[in-house]
C-alpha cells in the first residue's frame, strides 16, 4: 500500500518513544513530588491529622498559582530554572522539567481529593487505636484510598499526554510536535491522522488499564 506522506516510519517511532519517555519520567517525578504534596495538604488542613496553619496556608495558594498557568507559559517561564537544573533548555530532557512542575501540583490536588474521601470513621478508629500520624497515613489512609489513587494517576497520565504536545516548543519532540510541524505546518494530513489515532489509542488504553486496576483494588473482579 502506498501512503502519501513526508514522514518516515523511523520518525514516527522516534516520536512515540519521545512521548512515552516524557510521560513516563514526568509521571514518575511528578508522583514523587505530587503524592507527598497531596498528603501534606490533607494532614495539615484545619482539623487534619497534623494541623499546621503555616504549611497549609503557604502550600495551598502556591499550588493554585502553578496550576493556573497554561502549560505553554509555564514551559517558557521556567526556562532559566530548567537550564540550571539539567544544563540544557532544549530537547526531551528539558521538556521533562516543566512537565514535572506542571503535573506535580495537579497530582497533589487529585491525591488530596482521593484522601479526603476516606471514611473519617476509619481515621477515628486509627486514632482510637493509638496509631502514630505516619501509621494513620500508611496503614489507614493510603490503603483505603488506593483504588481512588489509581484513578488519580490515570487522570494525571492522560493530562500529561496532552501537555507533551506542547513540548515541541523546546525541541522536546513527541507525537504532538510531529503533528504540528509536519501535519499542520506542511499540510501532511496523514501525519495528523496517524498521530491522532495513536494518541486516542494511548489515552483509551491508559484509562482502561487504570479502571481495571482500580476495580481490582476495590475487590470487584
Amino acid at each position: 500500500m502506498n501512503i502519501d506522506t513526508i514522514i518516515t516510519s523511523e520518525q514516527l517511532i522516534r516520536a512515540v518513544n519521545e512521548t512515552l519517555r516524557m510521560v513516563g519520567f514526568s509521571l514518575l517525578f511528578g508522583a514523587l513530588l505530587g503524592i507527598p504534596i497531596g498528603i501534606l495538604l490533607v494532614v495539615t488542613r484545619p482539623g487534619g491529622l497534623l494541623e499546621n496553619r503555616l504549611v497549609y496556608r503557604v502550600l495551598n495558594p502556591v499550588i493554585n498559582v502553578v496550576r493556573s498557568l497554561p502549560f505553554i507559559i509555564l514551559l517558557v517561564a521556567i526556562l532559566p530554572f530548567t537550564r540550571w537544573l539539567v544544563n540544557t533548555s532544549i530537547g526531551t530532557t528539558a521538556a521533562i522539567v516543566p512537565l514535572v512542575l506542571y503535573v506535580a501540583p495537579y497530582i497533589g490536588r487529585l491525591v488530596e481529593n482521593s484522601l479526603l474521601e476516606v471514611n473519617p470513621g476509619i481515621l477515628e478508629a486509627a486514632q482510637a487505636m493509638g496509631a502514630k500520624p505516619w501509621q494513620v497515613i500508611w496503614h489507614f489512609m493510603l490503603p483505603e484510598a488506593f483504588s481512588s489513587l489509581i484513578l488519580t494517576m490515570t487522570t494525571a497520565t492522560i493530562g500529561l499526554i496532552g501537555a507533551t504536545a506542547m513540548a515541541g516548543t523546546v525541541g522536546g519532540g513527541g507525537l504532538g510536535d510531529l503533528a504540528i510541524s509536519y501535519g499542520y505546518q506542511r499540510f501532511d494530513t496523514f501525519t495528523v491522522v496517524i498521530t491522532v489515532v495513536l494518541l486516542v489509542i494511548f489515552v483509551q488504553g491508559i484509562q482502561s488499564a487504570g479502571n481495571a486496576l482500580a476495580r481490582r483494588a476495590r475487590r470487584e473482579r
Binding site: I122, A125, G130, K132, F146
Partner: peptide, 19 residues
Amino acid sequence: RAVKKKIGMVFQHFNLLES
C-alpha cells in the same frame, strides 16, 4: 497513645478497612 492501646473501641458503623 500507650493508654489508648489499652482501651478498645467499637463503632456503630464498624469502621473496618474495606481494603
